[in-house]
Design a protein around this nucleic acid. Structure first.
Lengths: 114, 114
DNA sequence: TCAAGTACTTACTTTGAAGTAACTAACGAA
DNA sequence: TTCGTTAGTTACTTCAAAGTAAGTACTTGA
């Protein structure tokens, strides 16, 4: 009984600690890579620009994903107290460091997936 | 009216064609990277070995993921007509070519994610 | 004759990510 | 005084991925 509990606990921790799983959970969603990709080639983008640039995303989704990315310290949000509102998003250094990964994924995907 | 239809259609196609999105959809699930990772270091594994090696996966999930990976031509399934059954899984060349990507993801994740 | 071993399948339920649609605040312009 | 603009929020629904639990086939060994 006690043994079984320990095994379950251990398994849970191991699954949580796999770096690839963590990466996929945190950056591997439907929209995050696309947002990062756009910011890699555009430096600064406003909310509406991102909204227009990403086909099919809703404002709710965009706002949510941007919050997530900010929490992960991958993007930087800069808000100006003007009306109508103006908010700028750009990659942090950490965010920019994803370029290599995304590029390599893109190339592999183009060569190997339909 | 006609214009609007065309825009929708175009957006749909664009979203479908993003190579990073395609990659994430096809290889970015919860289990596939882990399976590939294991086969990168083990060359040949049997069903039960994979089952035991992967914490928390169910037989149903494992079987399903292996089928998916086989369809993508990333792994090779070899079944022997013996009893009890014996089935071997190994990476194809295409599967092995994911090593670079997974390694780079792993390193980045270790350095940048919790 | 019954359990053990292997590689699954089937049926059902749960979960969470994503989608949809409408609403909001604040101000300047017409 | 209503409209347009920007960057969101809120409430609700949908759907596919994942989880759970049990069953299956076939044969050997005790």
């Amino acid at each position: 009984m006690k043994t079984e509990e320990k095994i379950v606990e251990k398994k849970y921790q191991q699954a949580k600690e796999c770096p690839i799983t963590i990466f996929m959970e945190q950056i591997g969603g439907k929209w995050k890579p696309v947002i990062i990709w756009l910011l890699l080639s555009n430096e600064v983008m406003r909310f509406n620009e991102l909204d227009k640039a990403i086909d099919g995303i809703s404002q709710k989704m965009l706002s949510q994903q941007l919050k997530d990315l900010e929490k992960l310290n991958l993007i930087d949000r800069k808000s100006y107290p003007v009306i109508p509102p103006k908010v700028e998003y750009r990659l942090t250094e950490k965010g920019k460091s994803l370029k290599e990964i995304l590029t390599i994924i893109m190339n592999w995907s183009n060569q190997n997936l339909r």
